[in-house]
Design a protein around this nucleic acid. Structure first.
Length: 599
DNA sequence: GCCGTTTTCGGCCCGACTGTTTTCAGTCG
Protein backbone atom coordinates (compact mmCIF):
# COMPACT_ATOMS: atom_id res chain seq x y z
CA UNK A 1 0.00 0.00 0.00
CA UNK A 2 1.36 3.37 -1.00
CA UNK A 3 1.92 5.66 1.95
CA UNK A 4 2.80 9.30 1.63
CA UNK A 5 3.40 12.21 3.99
CA UNK A 6 -0.01 13.54 3.01
CA UNK A 7 -1.69 10.47 4.52
CA UNK A 8 -0.10 11.01 7.91
CA UNK A 9 -0.73 14.77 7.69
CA UNK A 10 -4.41 14.19 6.91
CA UNK A 11 -4.69 11.80 9.85
CA UNK A 12 -3.07 14.27 12.22
CA UNK A 13 -5.25 17.13 10.99
CA UNK A 14 -8.33 15.06 11.64
CA UNK A 15 -7.08 14.15 15.10
CA UNK A 16 -6.47 17.84 15.83
CA UNK A 17 -9.97 18.78 14.66
CA UNK A 18 -11.62 16.07 16.70
CA UNK A 19 -9.53 16.79 19.81
CA UNK A 20 -10.57 20.44 19.60
CA UNK A 21 -14.21 19.55 19.24
CA UNK A 22 -13.96 17.13 22.14
CA UNK A 23 -12.50 19.99 24.17
CA UNK A 24 -9.93 20.32 26.92
CA UNK A 25 -7.01 19.45 24.70
CA UNK A 26 -6.07 22.75 23.10
CA UNK A 27 -2.30 22.33 23.22
CA UNK A 28 -2.38 18.66 22.41
CA UNK A 29 -4.48 19.47 19.36
CA UNK A 30 -2.02 22.18 18.40
CA UNK A 31 0.79 19.63 18.51
CA UNK A 32 -1.00 17.40 16.00
CA UNK A 33 -1.81 20.42 13.82
CA UNK A 34 1.83 21.47 13.87
CA UNK A 35 3.02 17.97 13.07
CA UNK A 36 0.61 17.77 10.12
CA UNK A 37 2.06 20.99 8.77
CA UNK A 38 5.63 19.75 9.19
CA UNK A 39 4.80 16.56 7.31
CA UNK A 40 3.01 18.43 4.54
CA UNK A 41 5.95 20.72 3.93
CA UNK A 42 8.67 18.14 4.19
CA UNK A 43 10.95 17.82 1.17
CA UNK A 44 11.20 14.05 1.57
CA UNK A 45 9.02 11.04 2.28
CA UNK A 46 8.80 9.85 5.89
CA UNK A 47 8.10 6.42 4.44
CA UNK A 48 11.72 6.36 3.25
CA UNK A 49 12.92 7.36 6.72
CA UNK A 50 10.93 4.50 8.21
CA UNK A 51 12.35 2.10 5.64
CA UNK A 52 15.93 3.06 6.43
CA UNK A 53 15.35 3.16 10.18
CA UNK A 54 16.11 6.87 10.42
CA UNK A 55 14.54 8.25 13.62
CA UNK A 56 11.45 10.38 12.94
CA UNK A 57 12.05 12.18 16.24
CA UNK A 58 14.68 14.20 14.41
CA UNK A 59 11.86 16.06 12.67
CA UNK A 60 10.68 19.25 14.38
CA UNK A 61 7.53 18.81 16.42
CA UNK A 62 7.69 15.01 16.24
CA UNK A 63 8.41 13.17 19.47
CA UNK A 64 8.38 9.51 20.36
CA UNK A 65 4.60 9.33 20.52
CA UNK A 66 3.92 10.95 17.16
CA UNK A 67 6.72 8.96 15.54
CA UNK A 68 4.93 5.83 16.69
CA UNK A 69 1.63 7.08 15.29
CA UNK A 70 3.21 7.87 11.92
CA UNK A 71 4.57 4.32 11.77
CA UNK A 72 1.14 3.04 12.73
CA UNK A 73 -0.54 5.04 9.95
CA UNK A 74 2.09 3.89 7.46
CA UNK A 75 1.45 0.27 8.39
CA UNK A 76 -2.31 0.25 8.81
CA UNK A 77 -3.63 3.41 7.14
CA UNK A 78 -4.97 4.74 10.44
CA UNK A 79 -4.13 4.78 14.13
CA UNK A 80 -5.88 3.78 17.32
CA UNK A 81 -6.29 7.34 18.64
CA UNK A 82 -8.00 8.43 15.43
CA UNK A 83 -10.28 5.40 15.46
CA UNK A 84 -11.21 6.10 19.06
CA UNK A 85 -11.95 9.77 18.36
CA UNK A 86 -14.10 8.80 15.40
CA UNK A 87 -16.11 6.53 17.68
CA UNK A 88 -16.61 9.39 20.15
CA UNK A 89 -17.38 12.18 17.69
CA UNK A 90 -18.92 11.79 14.29
CA UNK A 91 -16.24 12.69 11.72
CA UNK A 92 -18.90 14.66 9.85
CA UNK A 93 -18.61 17.34 12.52
CA UNK A 94 -15.38 18.43 10.82
CA UNK A 95 -17.52 19.84 8.02
CA UNK A 96 -18.91 22.37 10.46
CA UNK A 97 -15.44 23.65 11.32
CA UNK A 98 -14.98 24.86 7.76
CA UNK A 99 -17.80 27.36 8.17
CA UNK A 100 -16.95 30.94 9.10
CA UNK A 101 -17.86 31.73 12.72
CA UNK A 102 -17.80 28.05 13.66
CA UNK A 103 -14.84 26.90 15.69
CA UNK A 104 -14.43 23.96 18.02
CA UNK A 105 -16.68 25.33 20.77
CA UNK A 106 -19.65 26.02 18.55
CA UNK A 107 -19.17 22.82 16.56
CA UNK A 108 -19.17 20.89 19.83
CA UNK A 109 -22.35 22.61 21.04
CA UNK A 110 -24.13 22.01 17.75
CA UNK A 111 -23.14 18.35 17.83
CA UNK A 112 -23.75 17.64 21.53
CA UNK A 113 -26.93 19.65 22.01
CA UNK A 114 -28.60 19.33 18.61
CA UNK A 115 -26.96 16.25 17.11
CA UNK A 116 -25.81 18.29 14.11
CA UNK A 117 -23.00 16.55 12.24
CA UNK A 118 -23.27 17.81 8.68
CA UNK A 119 -23.94 21.02 6.80
CA UNK A 120 -27.33 19.70 5.75
CA UNK A 121 -28.33 18.98 9.36
CA UNK A 122 -27.14 22.43 10.38
CA UNK A 123 -29.30 23.95 7.67
CA UNK A 124 -32.37 22.13 9.00
CA UNK A 125 -31.63 23.05 12.61
CA UNK A 126 -31.17 26.71 11.67
CA UNK A 127 -34.37 26.78 9.64
CA UNK A 128 -36.25 25.26 12.61
CA UNK A 129 -34.92 28.00 14.88
CA UNK A 130 -33.20 25.51 17.16
CA UNK A 131 -29.71 26.99 16.73
CA UNK A 132 -30.58 30.37 18.26
CA UNK A 133 -31.51 28.71 21.54
CA UNK A 134 -28.02 27.37 22.17
CA UNK A 135 -25.90 29.11 24.77
CA UNK A 136 -23.79 31.78 23.08
CA UNK A 137 -25.82 31.71 19.88
CA UNK A 138 -28.33 34.30 18.71
CA UNK A 139 -30.85 34.92 15.97
CA UNK A 140 -28.26 36.95 14.08
CA UNK A 141 -25.66 34.19 14.31
CA UNK A 142 -28.22 31.57 13.28
CA UNK A 143 -29.04 33.64 10.20
CA UNK A 144 -25.37 34.06 9.39
CA UNK A 145 -24.72 30.32 9.69
CA UNK A 146 -27.64 29.56 7.42
CA UNK A 147 -26.19 31.88 4.78
CA UNK A 148 -22.73 30.36 5.23
CA UNK A 149 -24.08 26.83 4.75
CA UNK A 150 -25.82 27.78 1.53
CA UNK A 151 -22.77 29.65 0.24
CA UNK A 152 -20.32 26.89 1.11
CA UNK A 153 -22.27 24.37 -0.93
CA UNK A 154 -21.56 26.27 -4.12
CA UNK A 155 -18.31 28.11 -3.47
CA UNK A 156 -14.72 27.05 -3.79
CA UNK A 157 -12.69 28.05 -0.79
CA UNK A 158 -9.45 28.81 -2.61
CA UNK A 159 -8.86 30.78 -5.79
CA UNK A 160 -6.06 30.30 -8.34
CA UNK A 161 -3.28 32.86 -7.87
CA UNK A 162 -3.56 34.09 -11.45
CA UNK A 163 -7.18 35.17 -10.96
CA UNK A 164 -6.46 36.98 -7.69
CA UNK A 165 -3.38 38.94 -8.85
CA UNK A 166 -5.32 41.35 -11.12
CA UNK A 167 -8.01 41.84 -8.48
CA UNK A 168 -5.32 42.66 -5.93
CA UNK A 169 -3.72 45.14 -8.32
CA UNK A 170 -7.03 46.88 -9.08
CA UNK A 171 -7.99 47.19 -5.40
CA UNK A 172 -4.53 48.39 -4.46
CA UNK A 173 -4.67 51.05 -7.17
CA UNK A 174 -8.11 52.15 -6.01
CA UNK A 175 -7.11 52.40 -2.35
CA UNK A 176 -3.90 54.15 -3.34
CA UNK A 177 -5.96 57.02 -4.70
CA UNK A 178 -7.74 57.65 -1.38
CA UNK A 179 -6.42 60.92 0.09
CA UNK A 180 -3.95 60.33 2.90
CA UNK A 181 -2.99 56.81 1.83
CA UNK A 182 0.76 56.56 1.42
CA UNK A 183 1.27 52.94 0.46
CA UNK A 184 -0.74 49.81 -0.30
CA UNK A 185 0.71 46.31 -0.13
CA UNK A 186 -0.98 43.14 -1.32
CA UNK A 187 0.30 40.83 1.41
CA UNK A 188 -0.78 37.33 2.43
CA UNK A 189 -0.44 34.31 0.19
CA UNK A 190 -0.57 36.54 -2.91
CA UNK A 191 2.73 38.10 -1.90
CA UNK A 192 4.12 34.68 -1.11
CA UNK A 193 2.98 33.60 -4.60
CA UNK A 194 1.14 30.56 -3.34
CA UNK A 195 -0.52 28.73 -6.21
CA UNK A 196 -3.95 29.28 -4.69
CA UNK A 197 -5.23 32.06 -2.49
CA UNK A 198 -7.84 31.81 0.26
CA UNK A 199 -8.29 35.46 1.23
CA UNK A 200 -6.73 38.57 -0.23
CA UNK A 201 -4.88 40.56 2.44
CA UNK A 202 -4.30 44.26 1.81
CA UNK A 203 -2.18 46.47 4.01
CA UNK A 204 -2.54 50.25 3.88
CA UNK A 205 -0.17 52.79 5.35
CA UNK A 206 -2.13 55.84 6.40
CA UNK A 207 -2.57 58.08 9.42
CA UNK A 208 -5.70 57.45 11.51
CA UNK A 209 -8.95 58.95 10.28
CA UNK A 210 -8.34 58.97 6.53
CA UNK A 211 -11.65 57.37 5.72
CA UNK A 212 -10.00 54.52 3.88
CA UNK A 213 -12.25 51.99 5.66
CA UNK A 214 -15.39 53.77 4.50
CA UNK A 215 -14.04 53.92 0.97
CA UNK A 216 -13.18 50.22 1.07
CA UNK A 217 -16.61 49.14 2.33
CA UNK A 218 -18.37 51.20 -0.33
CA UNK A 219 -16.22 49.90 -3.20
CA UNK A 220 -18.45 48.75 -6.10
CA UNK A 221 -17.04 45.19 -6.19
CA UNK A 222 -17.99 44.62 -2.54
CA UNK A 223 -21.13 42.54 -2.04
CA UNK A 224 -21.02 42.09 1.72
CA UNK A 225 -19.19 43.63 4.67
CA UNK A 226 -18.26 40.86 7.09
CA UNK A 227 -16.54 42.98 9.71
CA UNK A 228 -15.59 46.59 9.99
CA UNK A 229 -13.44 48.21 12.65
CA UNK A 230 -11.17 51.22 12.80
CA UNK A 231 -8.01 49.36 11.80
CA UNK A 232 -9.33 46.18 10.28
CA UNK A 233 -12.18 45.23 7.93
CA UNK A 234 -13.27 42.19 5.94
CA UNK A 235 -15.49 42.15 2.88
CA UNK A 236 -16.73 39.69 0.29
CA UNK A 237 -16.33 40.49 -3.43
CA UNK A 238 -18.76 39.51 -6.16
CA UNK A 239 -16.65 36.50 -7.18
CA UNK A 240 -16.72 35.12 -3.63
CA UNK A 241 -13.21 36.30 -2.77
CA UNK A 242 -12.80 37.57 0.80
CA UNK A 243 -10.61 40.65 1.21
CA UNK A 244 -9.14 41.68 4.55
CA UNK A 245 -7.90 45.23 4.92
CA UNK A 246 -5.62 46.47 7.63
CA UNK A 247 -4.60 50.10 8.16
CA UNK A 248 -1.38 50.91 10.02
CA UNK A 249 0.86 53.87 10.78
CA UNK A 250 4.27 54.23 9.08
CA UNK A 251 6.23 53.25 12.19
CA UNK A 252 4.52 49.84 12.11
CA UNK A 253 4.46 49.18 8.39
CA UNK A 254 7.32 46.67 8.45
CA UNK A 255 6.07 44.57 11.33
CA UNK A 256 2.53 44.77 9.95
CA UNK A 257 3.81 43.62 6.53
CA UNK A 258 5.41 40.63 8.20
CA UNK A 259 2.29 39.84 10.16
CA UNK A 260 -0.04 40.20 7.19
CA UNK A 261 2.21 38.40 4.72
CA UNK A 262 2.60 35.31 6.87
CA UNK A 263 2.68 32.50 6.58
CA UNK A 264 1.11 31.88 9.92
CA UNK A 265 3.75 29.24 10.64
CA UNK A 266 6.54 31.68 9.77
CA UNK A 267 5.02 34.32 12.06
CA UNK A 268 4.71 31.90 14.93
CA UNK A 269 8.34 30.89 14.51
CA UNK A 270 9.44 34.54 14.48
CA UNK A 271 7.44 35.34 17.60
CA UNK A 272 8.88 32.35 19.36
CA UNK A 273 12.35 33.55 18.38
CA UNK A 274 11.50 36.97 19.79
CA UNK A 275 10.31 35.47 23.05
CA UNK A 276 13.53 33.50 23.38
CA UNK A 277 15.44 36.77 23.05
CA UNK A 278 13.30 38.47 25.70
CA UNK A 279 11.41 40.45 23.06
CA UNK A 280 7.81 40.67 21.96
CA UNK A 281 6.75 40.75 18.32
CA UNK A 282 3.33 41.80 17.12
CA UNK A 283 1.97 43.69 14.13
CA UNK A 284 2.91 47.03 15.67
CA UNK A 285 6.57 46.33 16.17
CA UNK A 286 9.28 44.48 18.00
CA UNK A 287 9.55 45.54 21.64
CA UNK A 288 11.99 45.06 24.47
CA UNK A 289 9.84 45.76 27.50
CA UNK A 290 8.14 49.06 26.70
CA UNK A 291 10.79 50.15 24.24
CA UNK A 292 10.22 49.68 20.51
CA UNK A 293 13.39 48.44 18.84
CA UNK A 294 12.15 47.74 15.28
CA UNK A 295 9.03 47.84 13.12
CA UNK A 296 9.18 50.47 10.38
CA UNK A 297 10.60 48.00 7.87
CA UNK A 298 10.65 44.22 7.57
CA UNK A 299 14.45 44.36 7.34
CA UNK A 300 14.66 46.10 10.72
CA UNK A 301 12.63 43.36 12.41
CA UNK A 302 14.61 40.52 10.87
CA UNK A 303 17.88 42.26 11.72
CA UNK A 304 16.87 42.79 15.35
CA UNK A 305 16.10 39.07 15.56
CA UNK A 306 19.55 38.25 14.18
CA UNK A 307 18.21 37.19 10.79
CA UNK A 308 18.97 38.16 7.21
CA UNK A 309 16.01 39.47 5.19
CA UNK A 310 13.79 36.58 4.13
CA UNK A 311 11.99 36.87 0.77
CA UNK A 312 8.18 36.47 1.05
CA UNK A 313 8.13 33.31 -1.09
CA UNK A 314 10.31 31.53 1.48
CA UNK A 315 8.20 32.39 4.52
CA UNK A 316 6.67 28.98 5.17
CA UNK A 317 8.72 27.79 8.14
CA UNK A 318 10.44 25.23 5.96
CA UNK A 319 13.96 25.95 7.15
CA UNK A 320 14.23 29.57 6.02
CA UNK A 321 14.68 30.90 9.55
CA UNK A 322 17.62 28.62 10.25
CA UNK A 323 19.09 29.55 6.85
CA UNK A 324 18.64 33.26 7.57
CA UNK A 325 20.41 32.89 10.90
CA UNK A 326 23.40 31.08 9.42
CA UNK A 327 23.69 33.17 6.25
CA UNK A 328 22.68 30.30 3.97
CA UNK A 329 19.59 31.80 2.34
CA UNK A 330 19.41 31.27 -1.43
CA UNK A 331 19.68 34.21 -3.85
CA UNK A 332 16.35 33.53 -5.51
CA UNK A 333 15.88 33.59 -9.26
CA UNK A 334 14.15 36.67 -10.69
CA UNK A 335 12.10 37.12 -13.85
CA UNK A 336 14.91 39.18 -15.38
CA UNK A 337 17.27 36.21 -15.02
CA UNK A 338 15.39 34.22 -17.66
CA UNK A 339 17.10 34.41 -21.04
CA UNK A 340 14.84 32.10 -22.97
CA UNK A 341 11.70 29.97 -22.99
CA UNK A 342 11.91 26.32 -24.00
CA UNK A 343 8.24 25.54 -24.60
CA UNK A 344 5.99 27.67 -26.78
CA UNK A 345 3.38 26.83 -29.38
CA UNK A 346 2.39 28.13 -32.79
CA UNK A 347 -0.44 27.50 -35.23
CA UNK A 348 1.39 24.24 -35.90
CA UNK A 349 -0.80 22.84 -33.12
CA UNK A 350 -3.11 24.76 -30.81
CA UNK A 351 -1.27 28.10 -30.72
CA UNK A 352 -2.63 31.26 -32.30
CA UNK A 353 0.46 32.77 -33.95
CA UNK A 354 3.05 31.96 -36.60
CA UNK A 355 6.63 30.97 -35.87
CA UNK A 356 7.84 34.47 -36.61
CA UNK A 357 5.17 36.16 -34.50
CA UNK A 358 5.98 34.02 -31.47
CA UNK A 359 9.68 34.64 -31.87
CA UNK A 360 9.13 38.39 -31.95
CA UNK A 361 6.72 38.26 -29.01
CA UNK A 362 9.40 36.40 -27.04
CA UNK A 363 11.90 39.11 -27.90
CA UNK A 364 9.50 41.80 -26.72
CA UNK A 365 9.45 40.00 -23.38
CA UNK A 366 13.21 40.31 -23.16
CA UNK A 367 14.01 36.74 -24.19
CA UNK A 368 17.01 35.91 -26.38
CA UNK A 369 15.90 32.45 -27.46
CA UNK A 370 12.71 30.45 -27.72
CA UNK A 371 12.05 26.80 -28.46
CA UNK A 372 9.08 25.95 -30.64
CA UNK A 373 7.44 22.88 -29.10
CA UNK A 374 4.08 22.22 -30.70
CA UNK A 375 2.04 19.25 -29.55
CA UNK A 376 2.27 15.96 -31.34
CA UNK A 377 -0.97 14.66 -32.77
CA UNK A 378 -2.69 11.76 -31.16
CA UNK A 379 -5.88 10.07 -32.31
CA UNK A 380 -8.97 12.14 -31.83
CA UNK A 381 -7.07 15.37 -31.40
CA UNK A 382 -8.13 18.15 -33.73
CA UNK A 383 -4.80 19.91 -33.95
CA UNK A 384 -1.27 18.68 -33.51
CA UNK A 385 1.74 17.67 -35.50
CA UNK A 386 2.28 14.32 -37.14
CA UNK A 387 5.75 13.35 -38.32
CA UNK A 388 5.19 14.80 -41.75
CA UNK A 389 4.03 18.22 -40.55
CA UNK A 390 6.78 18.36 -37.92
CA UNK A 391 9.32 17.74 -40.73
CA UNK A 392 7.83 20.65 -42.64
CA UNK A 393 8.00 22.88 -39.55
CA UNK A 394 11.67 22.00 -39.11
CA UNK A 395 12.34 23.05 -42.71
CA UNK A 396 10.36 26.21 -42.12
CA UNK A 397 12.46 27.16 -39.08
CA UNK A 398 15.64 26.44 -41.03
CA UNK A 399 14.42 28.65 -43.86
CA UNK A 400 13.43 31.41 -41.49
CA UNK A 401 16.95 31.37 -40.21
CA UNK A 402 17.61 30.30 -36.70
CA UNK A 403 18.43 33.80 -35.65
CA UNK A 404 15.71 36.21 -36.40
CA UNK A 405 16.12 39.88 -35.54
CA UNK A 406 18.01 39.17 -32.34
CA UNK A 407 16.07 36.15 -31.10
CA UNK A 408 17.16 32.56 -31.68
CA UNK A 409 14.68 29.83 -32.56
CA UNK A 410 15.24 26.32 -31.29
CA UNK A 411 13.54 23.34 -32.90
CA UNK A 412 11.50 21.23 -30.53
CA UNK A 413 8.29 19.30 -30.06
CA UNK A 414 6.08 18.24 -27.19
CA UNK A 415 5.46 14.53 -27.60
CA UNK A 416 3.01 12.38 -25.71
CA UNK A 417 4.38 9.89 -23.25
CA UNK A 418 2.20 6.87 -23.95
CA UNK A 419 1.05 4.52 -21.21
CA UNK A 420 3.97 2.15 -21.78
CA UNK A 421 6.46 5.01 -21.55
CA UNK A 422 7.13 5.25 -25.28
CA UNK A 423 6.91 8.47 -27.30
CA UNK A 424 4.43 9.06 -30.11
CA UNK A 425 6.90 10.30 -32.71
CA UNK A 426 9.50 8.28 -34.64
CA UNK A 427 13.19 8.60 -33.75
CA UNK A 428 14.01 9.48 -37.34
CA UNK A 429 12.26 12.83 -36.95
CA UNK A 430 13.13 13.45 -33.29
CA UNK A 431 16.84 13.32 -34.07
CA UNK A 432 16.51 16.40 -36.30
CA UNK A 433 15.42 18.54 -33.31
CA UNK A 434 17.30 20.56 -30.71
CA UNK A 435 15.12 19.29 -27.88
CA UNK A 436 12.23 16.96 -27.09
CA UNK A 437 9.70 17.79 -24.36
CA UNK A 438 7.79 14.70 -23.27
CA UNK A 439 4.50 14.99 -21.37
CA UNK A 440 1.57 12.93 -20.16
CA UNK A 441 -1.74 13.91 -21.73
CA UNK A 442 -3.82 10.80 -21.15
CA UNK A 443 -3.79 7.72 -18.95
CA UNK A 444 -4.04 9.77 -15.76
CA UNK A 445 -5.50 6.95 -13.69
CA UNK A 446 -2.58 4.50 -13.66
CA UNK A 447 -1.25 3.32 -10.31
CA UNK A 448 1.59 5.14 -8.61
CA UNK A 449 4.07 2.42 -9.50
CA UNK A 450 2.98 2.35 -13.14
CA UNK A 451 3.02 6.13 -13.57
CA UNK A 452 6.46 6.37 -12.00
CA UNK A 453 7.82 3.61 -14.23
CA UNK A 454 6.13 5.18 -17.26
CA UNK A 455 7.92 8.50 -16.82
CA UNK A 456 11.23 6.84 -15.99
CA UNK A 457 11.01 4.74 -19.14
CA UNK A 458 10.23 7.82 -21.21
CA UNK A 459 13.40 9.44 -19.90
CA UNK A 460 15.37 6.38 -21.02
CA UNK A 461 14.42 7.17 -24.60
CA UNK A 462 17.48 8.24 -26.66
CA UNK A 463 15.75 11.49 -27.63
CA UNK A 464 14.28 12.98 -24.49
CA UNK A 465 15.29 16.37 -23.09
CA UNK A 466 12.69 17.74 -20.72
CA UNK A 467 9.86 16.16 -18.76
CA UNK A 468 6.88 18.48 -19.36
CA UNK A 469 4.31 19.29 -16.64
CA UNK A 470 5.14 16.09 -14.76
CA UNK A 471 1.99 15.60 -12.70
CA UNK A 472 -0.59 16.76 -15.25
CA UNK A 473 -2.61 18.53 -12.60
CA UNK A 474 -5.01 21.39 -13.34
CA UNK A 475 -5.40 23.38 -10.15
CA UNK A 476 -8.95 23.06 -8.85
CA UNK A 477 -9.96 20.89 -11.82
CA UNK A 478 -7.82 17.80 -12.10
CA UNK A 479 -5.73 16.10 -9.44
CA UNK A 480 -2.07 15.35 -10.13
CA UNK A 481 -1.35 11.85 -11.32
CA UNK A 482 -0.24 9.51 -8.58
CA UNK A 483 3.52 9.67 -8.82
CA UNK A 484 6.69 9.11 -6.84
CA UNK A 485 8.09 12.49 -7.82
CA UNK A 486 11.31 11.93 -5.89
CA UNK A 487 12.01 8.76 -7.84
CA UNK A 488 11.22 10.51 -11.13
CA UNK A 489 13.54 13.42 -10.37
CA UNK A 490 16.22 11.05 -9.20
CA UNK A 491 15.91 9.22 -12.51
CA UNK A 492 16.14 12.50 -14.41
CA UNK A 493 19.45 13.13 -12.67
CA UNK A 494 20.73 9.72 -13.66
CA UNK A 495 19.60 10.14 -17.27
CA UNK A 496 20.77 13.75 -17.65
CA UNK A 497 17.22 14.96 -18.35
CA UNK A 498 15.63 18.21 -17.23
CA UNK A 499 12.33 18.93 -15.50
CA UNK A 500 9.87 21.56 -16.66
CA UNK A 501 7.99 23.99 -14.51
CA UNK A 502 5.04 24.72 -16.78
CA UNK A 503 3.91 28.23 -15.83
CA UNK A 504 0.37 28.00 -17.22
CA UNK A 505 -1.85 29.49 -14.48
CA UNK A 506 -3.71 26.27 -13.71
CA UNK A 507 -0.71 24.00 -14.13
CA UNK A 508 2.26 25.42 -12.18
CA UNK A 509 3.63 21.95 -12.60
CA UNK A 510 6.03 20.92 -11.09
CA UNK A 511 5.09 22.63 -7.84
CA UNK A 512 7.28 24.41 -5.29
CA UNK A 513 7.96 21.30 -3.25
CA UNK A 514 9.12 19.33 -6.27
CA UNK A 515 11.32 22.29 -7.27
CA UNK A 516 13.11 21.93 -3.99
CA UNK A 517 13.63 18.23 -4.59
CA UNK A 518 15.04 19.01 -8.04
CA UNK A 519 17.46 21.46 -6.47
CA UNK A 520 18.58 18.91 -3.92
CA UNK A 521 19.08 16.32 -6.66
CA UNK A 522 20.86 18.81 -8.91
CA UNK A 523 18.35 18.50 -11.77
CA UNK A 524 17.99 21.75 -13.74
CA UNK A 525 14.46 23.15 -14.06
CA UNK A 526 13.11 24.67 -17.28
CA UNK A 527 10.66 27.45 -16.44
CA UNK A 528 8.39 27.49 -19.46
CA UNK A 529 5.44 29.65 -20.43
CA UNK A 530 3.87 26.95 -22.64
CA UNK A 531 2.65 30.09 -24.45
CA UNK A 532 -0.18 29.61 -26.94
CA UNK A 533 -0.25 33.31 -27.84
CA UNK A 534 1.91 36.44 -27.60
CA UNK A 535 0.66 37.54 -24.19
CA UNK A 536 1.18 34.17 -22.53
CA UNK A 537 4.83 34.97 -21.88
CA UNK A 538 3.46 36.87 -18.87
CA UNK A 539 2.84 33.45 -17.29
CA UNK A 540 6.59 33.23 -16.70
CA UNK A 541 6.05 35.51 -13.72
CA UNK A 542 3.89 32.81 -12.11
CA UNK A 543 6.52 30.19 -12.85
CA UNK A 544 9.20 32.36 -11.28
CA UNK A 545 7.01 32.65 -8.18
CA UNK A 546 6.79 28.89 -7.76
CA UNK A 547 10.51 28.47 -8.47
CA UNK A 548 11.30 31.02 -5.76
CA UNK A 549 8.99 29.19 -3.36
CA UNK A 550 11.07 26.12 -4.20
CA UNK A 551 14.29 27.94 -3.18
CA UNK A 552 15.62 27.97 -6.75
CA UNK A 553 18.51 30.22 -7.70
CA UNK A 554 19.51 31.26 -11.24
CA UNK A 555 22.04 28.42 -11.37
CA UNK A 556 19.25 25.88 -10.71
CA UNK A 557 17.38 26.93 -13.86
CA UNK A 558 18.12 25.70 -17.38
CA UNK A 559 16.85 28.76 -19.24
CA UNK A 560 18.80 31.36 -17.27
CA UNK A 561 21.82 30.20 -19.24
CA UNK A 562 23.10 31.75 -22.46
CA UNK A 563 22.05 30.11 -25.69
CA UNK A 564 25.41 28.42 -26.33
CA UNK A 565 25.34 26.71 -22.96
CA UNK A 566 21.69 25.66 -23.33
CA UNK A 567 22.42 24.22 -26.77
CA UNK A 568 25.29 22.19 -25.37
CA UNK A 569 23.22 20.91 -22.45
CA UNK A 570 20.30 19.98 -24.70
CA UNK A 571 22.59 18.29 -27.24
CA UNK A 572 23.59 15.82 -24.54
CA UNK A 573 19.96 14.72 -24.22
CA UNK A 574 19.57 14.06 -27.94
CA UNK A 575 20.74 10.73 -29.30
CA UNK A 576 22.44 9.67 -26.12
CA UNK A 577 22.55 6.03 -26.99
CA UNK A 578 20.98 5.80 -30.39
CA UNK A 579 20.82 2.13 -31.30
CA UNK A 580 22.80 0.76 -34.20
CA UNK A 581 20.81 -0.82 -37.01
CA UNK A 582 21.53 -4.28 -35.56
CA UNK A 583 20.61 -3.79 -31.92
CA UNK A 584 17.16 -2.48 -31.68
CA UNK A 585 16.13 -1.23 -28.26
CA UNK A 586 12.57 -1.80 -27.17
CA UNK A 587 12.10 1.92 -27.65
CA UNK A 588 12.70 1.82 -31.33
CA UNK A 589 10.14 -0.89 -31.71
CA UNK A 590 7.75 0.69 -29.30
CA UNK A 591 7.89 4.16 -30.74
CA UNK A 592 7.58 2.78 -34.24
CA UNK A 593 4.47 0.91 -33.33
CA UNK A 594 3.12 4.06 -31.74
CA UNK A 595 3.38 6.12 -34.89
CA UNK A 596 -0.03 7.02 -36.14
CA UNK A 597 0.31 7.51 -39.89
CA UNK A 598 -2.28 9.89 -41.30
CA UNK A 599 -5.07 8.18 -43.18
C1' DG B 1 2.06 16.11 22.95
C1' DC B 2 6.45 18.67 22.39
C1' DC B 3 10.33 20.98 24.21
C1' DG B 4 14.53 23.28 26.80
C1' DT B 5 21.25 29.67 27.01
C1' DT B 6 15.01 31.17 32.86
C1' DT B 7 15.05 22.90 30.98
C1' DT B 8 12.63 17.65 32.76
C1' DC B 9 7.89 20.97 34.46
C1' DG B 10 5.14 24.26 32.89
C1' DG B 11 4.81 26.66 29.46
C1' DC B 12 2.98 26.63 24.43
C1' DC B 13 2.14 33.76 19.35
C1' DC B 14 -0.59 37.75 19.66
C1' DG B 15 -4.18 41.03 18.90
C1' DA B 16 -8.80 42.71 16.45
C1' DC B 17 -13.53 42.12 16.06
C1' DT B 18 -18.11 40.21 17.32
C1' DG B 19 -21.83 39.45 20.17
C1' DT B 20 -23.64 39.21 24.34
C1' DT B 21 -22.65 34.71 29.09
C1' DT B 22 -22.27 43.23 30.17
C1' DT B 23 -16.51 41.54 31.26
C1' DC B 24 -14.99 38.16 28.12
C1' DA B 25 -15.20 33.78 25.33
C1' DG B 26 -15.08 32.49 20.64
C1' DT B 27 -13.30 33.06 16.22
C1' DC B 28 -10.14 34.61 12.98
C1' DG B 29 -5.87 35.79 10.69
Amino acid sequence: MAFSNADAAAGFDEIADLLEVRGGHAFRARTYRNAARVLGGLGREVGDMLATGEPLEALPGIGADLAGKIAEIAATGTCELLAQLRREIDPGVRELLRLPAVGPRRAQLLYRELGVKSLEQLRMAAEDGRVRKLRGFSIALERRLLQAVKASLKRDRRHPLATVLPVAQALADELGRVPGVRRVLAAGSVRRMRETVGDLDLLVEAPPGTGVMEHFALSPQVTEVLARGSTRSSVLLAGGLQVDLRVVRPASFGSASLYFTGSKAHNIALRRLALDAGLKLNEYGLDRGKRRIAGATEESVYAALGLAYIEPELREDRGEIEAARSGRLPSLVRLADLRGDLHVRTRGSDGTQTLREMALAARRHGLAYVAIADRSKRPGMASGLDAERLARQIDEIDALGETLDGVTLLKGVEVDILEDGSLDMPDAILRRLDLVVGSVHQGFALSRAKQTARLQRAMDHPYFSILGHATGRLIGKRDPIDLDIEAVIHHAKARGSFIELDAQPLRLDIDDRACRIAKQEGVLVSIASDAHGPHDFDFLRLGIGQARRGWLEPADILNTRPIEEVRALLARTMGRFAPSSKEKTPWTASSSSAIRTPA
